[in-house]
Design a protein around this nucleic acid. Structure first.
Lengths: 221, 221
DNA sequence: CTGCATCCGGGCCGATACTG
DNA sequence: CAGTATCGGCCCGGATGCAG
């Protein structure tokens, strides 16, 4: 990318990660070291040359390293983008109220959203395990000691299971829709969904979100 | 911008503010409503058509409103980007260790950096006023009740005055360089610079920053 | 099959000229 | 002052090729 040539932290930061696809590539690497092929799968729509180019640029900037096993990984500095992306995801969360439409979706993207919504220590948070199932790929949220983690796969006896379209699952987790509406959206709920309130997601900025789209798209909440 | 078409908060957020110049435009509007001409001055290098186009786009997205007096302002949702940009600026702060070179600089950009470094409530923070002078344009940091604000202009009796090149002033504020080095860089210090430690800036991620540039550019600390 | 490099058409960007 | 118009160039997107 052409540099902004401004002596400003934001401008210089954007010189590093402001290129198209770059922050989404970081999003993928936040889940751990990944191969080129995995990154392609997690970035539907990117051209192969662009992925290679972005990886080289981030490597030159010190955000990414290529490890001996061929995987790409974030450097410690690159890991620092987690907080940035989580903060940004919370700001952008209202945009998720517009349903998927033709947009691509990958179940592991839920991990970032769960991270953004629950990335804090809350002593009043209840211990709870919640299994999420979108597109038949299970993930499990484990709340313990005030913290929330999410892992791939299932655990034996989850307190709640949410299965169905991602907008419904997300709406329930964020506390933006109720059980009935989620069921309308096609979400299957096993267990007591009211326990989800004890996960206590970070409040999204009360100062609303974007104005409703002019088209007849139906919002979530 | 072409949409990423991904059902992901980050991707949808980038659809709104991922275009080139967009976040820097938001940076300018974080200081308050601004006229078209002010924005041009604060965004050296932007083309006039791009500024107009970005403003229209952000207006359509609900991030910016054009007020009756012709000024552009952030909506409440747009104001929510402050936390995002501050978090990002802290991540990118190590990049400021590389001196200005030919980069453009505007004194009011310091306000964002001060905001990013001190945007918290710290009960152990001392009350203090610090005047900053870069390019003969004074700003004043006022720490009181554990909070830090920065305003344009001077106040009668600041505890400390820092005047000189922005990299030196910033290095002192962030606690990354000492008085002697700052003086070397051309900073004039009036008052007791040791009081600056009582401002207690947010710690930057200890996990370093980018690797040193291969060229012989001299770092700040 | 993975991990790219190359090629090419189109759109976004950058710079300047111009208008109310 | 507040933009619009225009045009060249570069980045992006999509397809293909190819080496290991």
């Amino acid at each position: 990318m052409r540099s902004y040539r401004q002596y400003c932290a934001l401008a210089r930061g954007l010189d590093v990660v402001g290129d198209r696809w770059t922050l989404l590539l970081v999003r993928e690497l936040l889940e751990g070291p990944r191969r080129y092929r995995d990154l392609l799968d997690g970035l539907p729509g990117i051209a192969t040359n662009l992925l290679a180019e972005r990886l080289r640029g981030l490597e030159a900037s010190g955000v990414v390293v290529r490890r001996d096993d061929g995987r790409y990984a974030l450097t410690p500095w690159g890991q620092g983008l987690r907080e940035v992306l989580y903060t940004f995801a919370r700001w952008a969360a209202p945009l998720m109220a517009v349903p998927l439409g033709d947009d691509a979706f990958r179940p592991h993207w839920l991990h970032n959203l769960v991270g953004a919504l629950f990335d804090d220590v809350d002593p009043e948070r209840a211990n709870l395990t919640v299994e999420l199932r979108c597109e038949d790929e299970p993930s499990t949220i484990i709340a313990a000691a005030g913290r929330v983690r999410i892992t791939h796969g299932s655990v034996p006896d989850p307190d709640v299971v949410l299965a169905g379209p991602p907008n419904g699952v997300i709406g329930l987790l964020a506390g933006r829709i109720d059980e009935a509406f989620a069921t309308d959206l096609g979400v299957t709920i096993i267990g007591d969904a009211r326990q989800l309130t004890h996960l206590r997601p970070r409040p999204l900025p009360e100062t609303g979100g974007p104005p409703p789209r002019p088209t007849g798209t139906r919002s979530l909440g």
